[in-house]
Computed example of a mutant assay.
Amino acid sequence: MIKNTVIQFLNEVLYKSIRQQHVDEHLFEYLYNAISWFDETEELSVNFHLSFLMKLTRFLGFAPRPQLRLDQKYFDLQDGNFTSLAPVHPYYTSDEEGKSLMLLLSTAFQKNNEIKFSNAYRRLLLDKILIYYQLHTASFGQVKSHQILEEVLS
């Protein structure tokens, strides 16, 4: 039940974010390997969807740029980079949230369960990731299945 709900959610995000007309072997390979791993793994990975979406940004062309200096405390969701000052728009994260997003981006799926987030924090990160996708994907719109996913994962 949980895996099906996660896959339905990811399917909706993929449908809204991939608009390519050409063959992309690297994207296909990533999707195939990630979803196959998720399907075959025995242990439920509650962070899989977060990690999957952060890694997917590399293939969609808007992967976040890493923090370069310690004084860069804010992750600007609109520009996709860390900044020293809070942006004038509302689309940014705190230092901790930005670091969590980068951790999800860099951690292998097999090690996702070593990342410990509360359910509330996981929901917050998902909301930030969806905003990030909305800002970087034309006509992305609202994702409806994430409320169902939140209910199932809580």
Rank of each mutant, 00 (worst) to 15 (best):
I35R: 02
L50M: 07
T107W: 01
V46M: 14
P87R: 02
I18W: 01
I115W: 02
H26R: 10
G98D: 03
E96K: 09
D24I: 00
R69Y: 15
Q21L: 13
G80E: 04
S94A: 06
E29T: 11
F75P: 00
H49K: 02
T93D: 07
D24R: 04
G80C: 08
F75A: 04
E114I: 02
E96W: 11
E97I: 04
L56W: 01
L85K: 12
H49W: 09
K55R: 13
K99T: 06
E114C: 07
S106E: 10
L60K: 02
A108E: 07
L44T: 14
R19C: 06
S106Q: 08
H26N: 12
L50D: 08
S45P: 00
R58Y: 14
K55V: 05
Q110I: 11
E96F: 13
T57G: 10
Q72L: 06
L50V: 06
L101G: 05
K73V: 13
E97W: 02
L60V: 02
Y15E: 12
F75V: 01
E96G: 02
F117L: 13
T93N: 09
E114Y: 12
F75G: 02
L68K: 10
L50F: 08
A63D: 01
K116V: 12
S94F: 08
Y91I: 03
T107G: 03
A86S: 14
E43W: 00
F109H: 03
Q20I: 13
